Amino acid sequence: MAIWNLGSINEDIVLSVPHIPAPGETLAATKREVFLGGKGTNMSVAAARAGTRVNHIGAVAKSATWTGERLLEYGVDTRHIVILDTDPAQAMIMVAADGENAIVLQSGANGEIPQAKLQEALSEADTGDWFITQNETNLQRTGATLARKMGLRVAYAAAPFDADRVQAVLDVLDFLILNAVEAEQLRQATGQGPDALGITDVIVTLGSGGADWYHQGKLSHFDAIAVDPVDTTGAGDTFTGYVLAGLDRGMPMAQAIGQATKAAALMVTRHGTADVIPDLSEVQDFQL
């Protein structure tokens, strides 16, 4: 089987700071690094490193073609990434000494993916493949609806959270993943908790608190693995990519979550985003 990811591709500009600045505060960064990133990219790299076939659907600016080339190096099929004469997609990421982060996004090419490219890509998909998308690109509702009609299993990562965009796809989802803050935002928008959305599988990630999995409304909890974090950026995306890869490879959800929990724990011990996502051998060798 395979995963088809309608996902963002960013240049991540990471600034190390003493702490996340308060409103009106100016801080001097202690370090600047540039990585491949974007929620979609991180998920694609994680799923590929977890051992499944990943096809990325997206767009990059002419000035940022290195991002697509790097994705290819990491084992992702990039034939359905279009190059546009537009602004590059960038994320400005501040990482504090305690590992917490704050992120500002410039959507650039991510918001200009042509519908024809989406349709062309999904014409190659097979029944039973997975389709995943997030809120950093255009065409989420179009892609999710088309994928469902074609017999794909449809997953959605509800970040960055937008109540209208999330609600627009709820009726075509097999799997929804969101963090605790996003789950509460969705509850406020819909009046429904994760157990009452009518979606077969919902995962709420809780950071160091682990994750809650709702299968047809029934709750199971999974503890996180205690590590000393240095950078939490991309940990949630790594978790999502590993869960989807496990499901695509035929794992039961509980086993896929267990493997993804290890991957996310390794990820927070590293500085960076897509470039430092652990591969399957590292996750399997990870000692609790």
Rank of each mutant, 00 (worst) to 15 (best):
E33F: 05
S44C: 14
P114L: 01
V230A: 07
R249H: 03
W130K: 09
V181T: 11
H215I: 09
R187G: 08
L247P: 00
T145C: 09
D87F: 08
L6M: 14
D162C: 15
T232G: 06
A89V: 10
G210F: 15
G193H: 04
L122H: 07
D212E: 05
G75Q: 06
A245Q: 13
E112L: 11
E11L: 09
D195S: 03
Y242Q: 01
I103A: 06
Q134K: 14
A116N: 04
E184Q: 09
R79S: 15
V60E: 04
H19D: 00
I3S: 02
M43N: 10
K62E: 09
L118F: 10
D171A: 09
R148P: 01
L288H: 13
W4T: 08
Q188L: 14
D279P: 13
T273E: 06
A226Q: 14
D171T: 01
H215M: 03
G68N: 04
P160K: 13
F131I: 08
R141M: 04
F239R: 10
A28N: 00
V154E: 08
W130Y: 07
V45A: 10
A263C: 00
T133A: 00
V14K: 05
R141E: 01
A116H: 01
S208K: 09
L139F: 14
F131T: 01
D171C: 09
A22F: 03
M1H: 10
G151I: 01
Q284H: 15
Q284C: 15
V82E: 03
P23D: 07
V230Q: 07
A29Y: 05
F131N: 01
G258T: 03
G40M: 12
L186R: 00
D279F: 07
G128K: 13
V154D: 05
T273M: 06
A189W: 06
V172S: 08
K62M: 07
A147I: 07
N55P: 02
D279C: 12
A50S: 15
K149Q: 13
V268D: 02
D223Q: 08
F175D: 03
T142A: 11
I81G: 00
V76E: 13
E11T: 13
E69V: 05
G128M: 03
I81K: 00
N101E: 01
A102N: 12
Q106A: 13
S281V: 13
Y214E: 13
L36W: 09
G241L: 05
A121R: 04
V172Q: 03
A147G: 06
G207Q: 06
S107M: 12
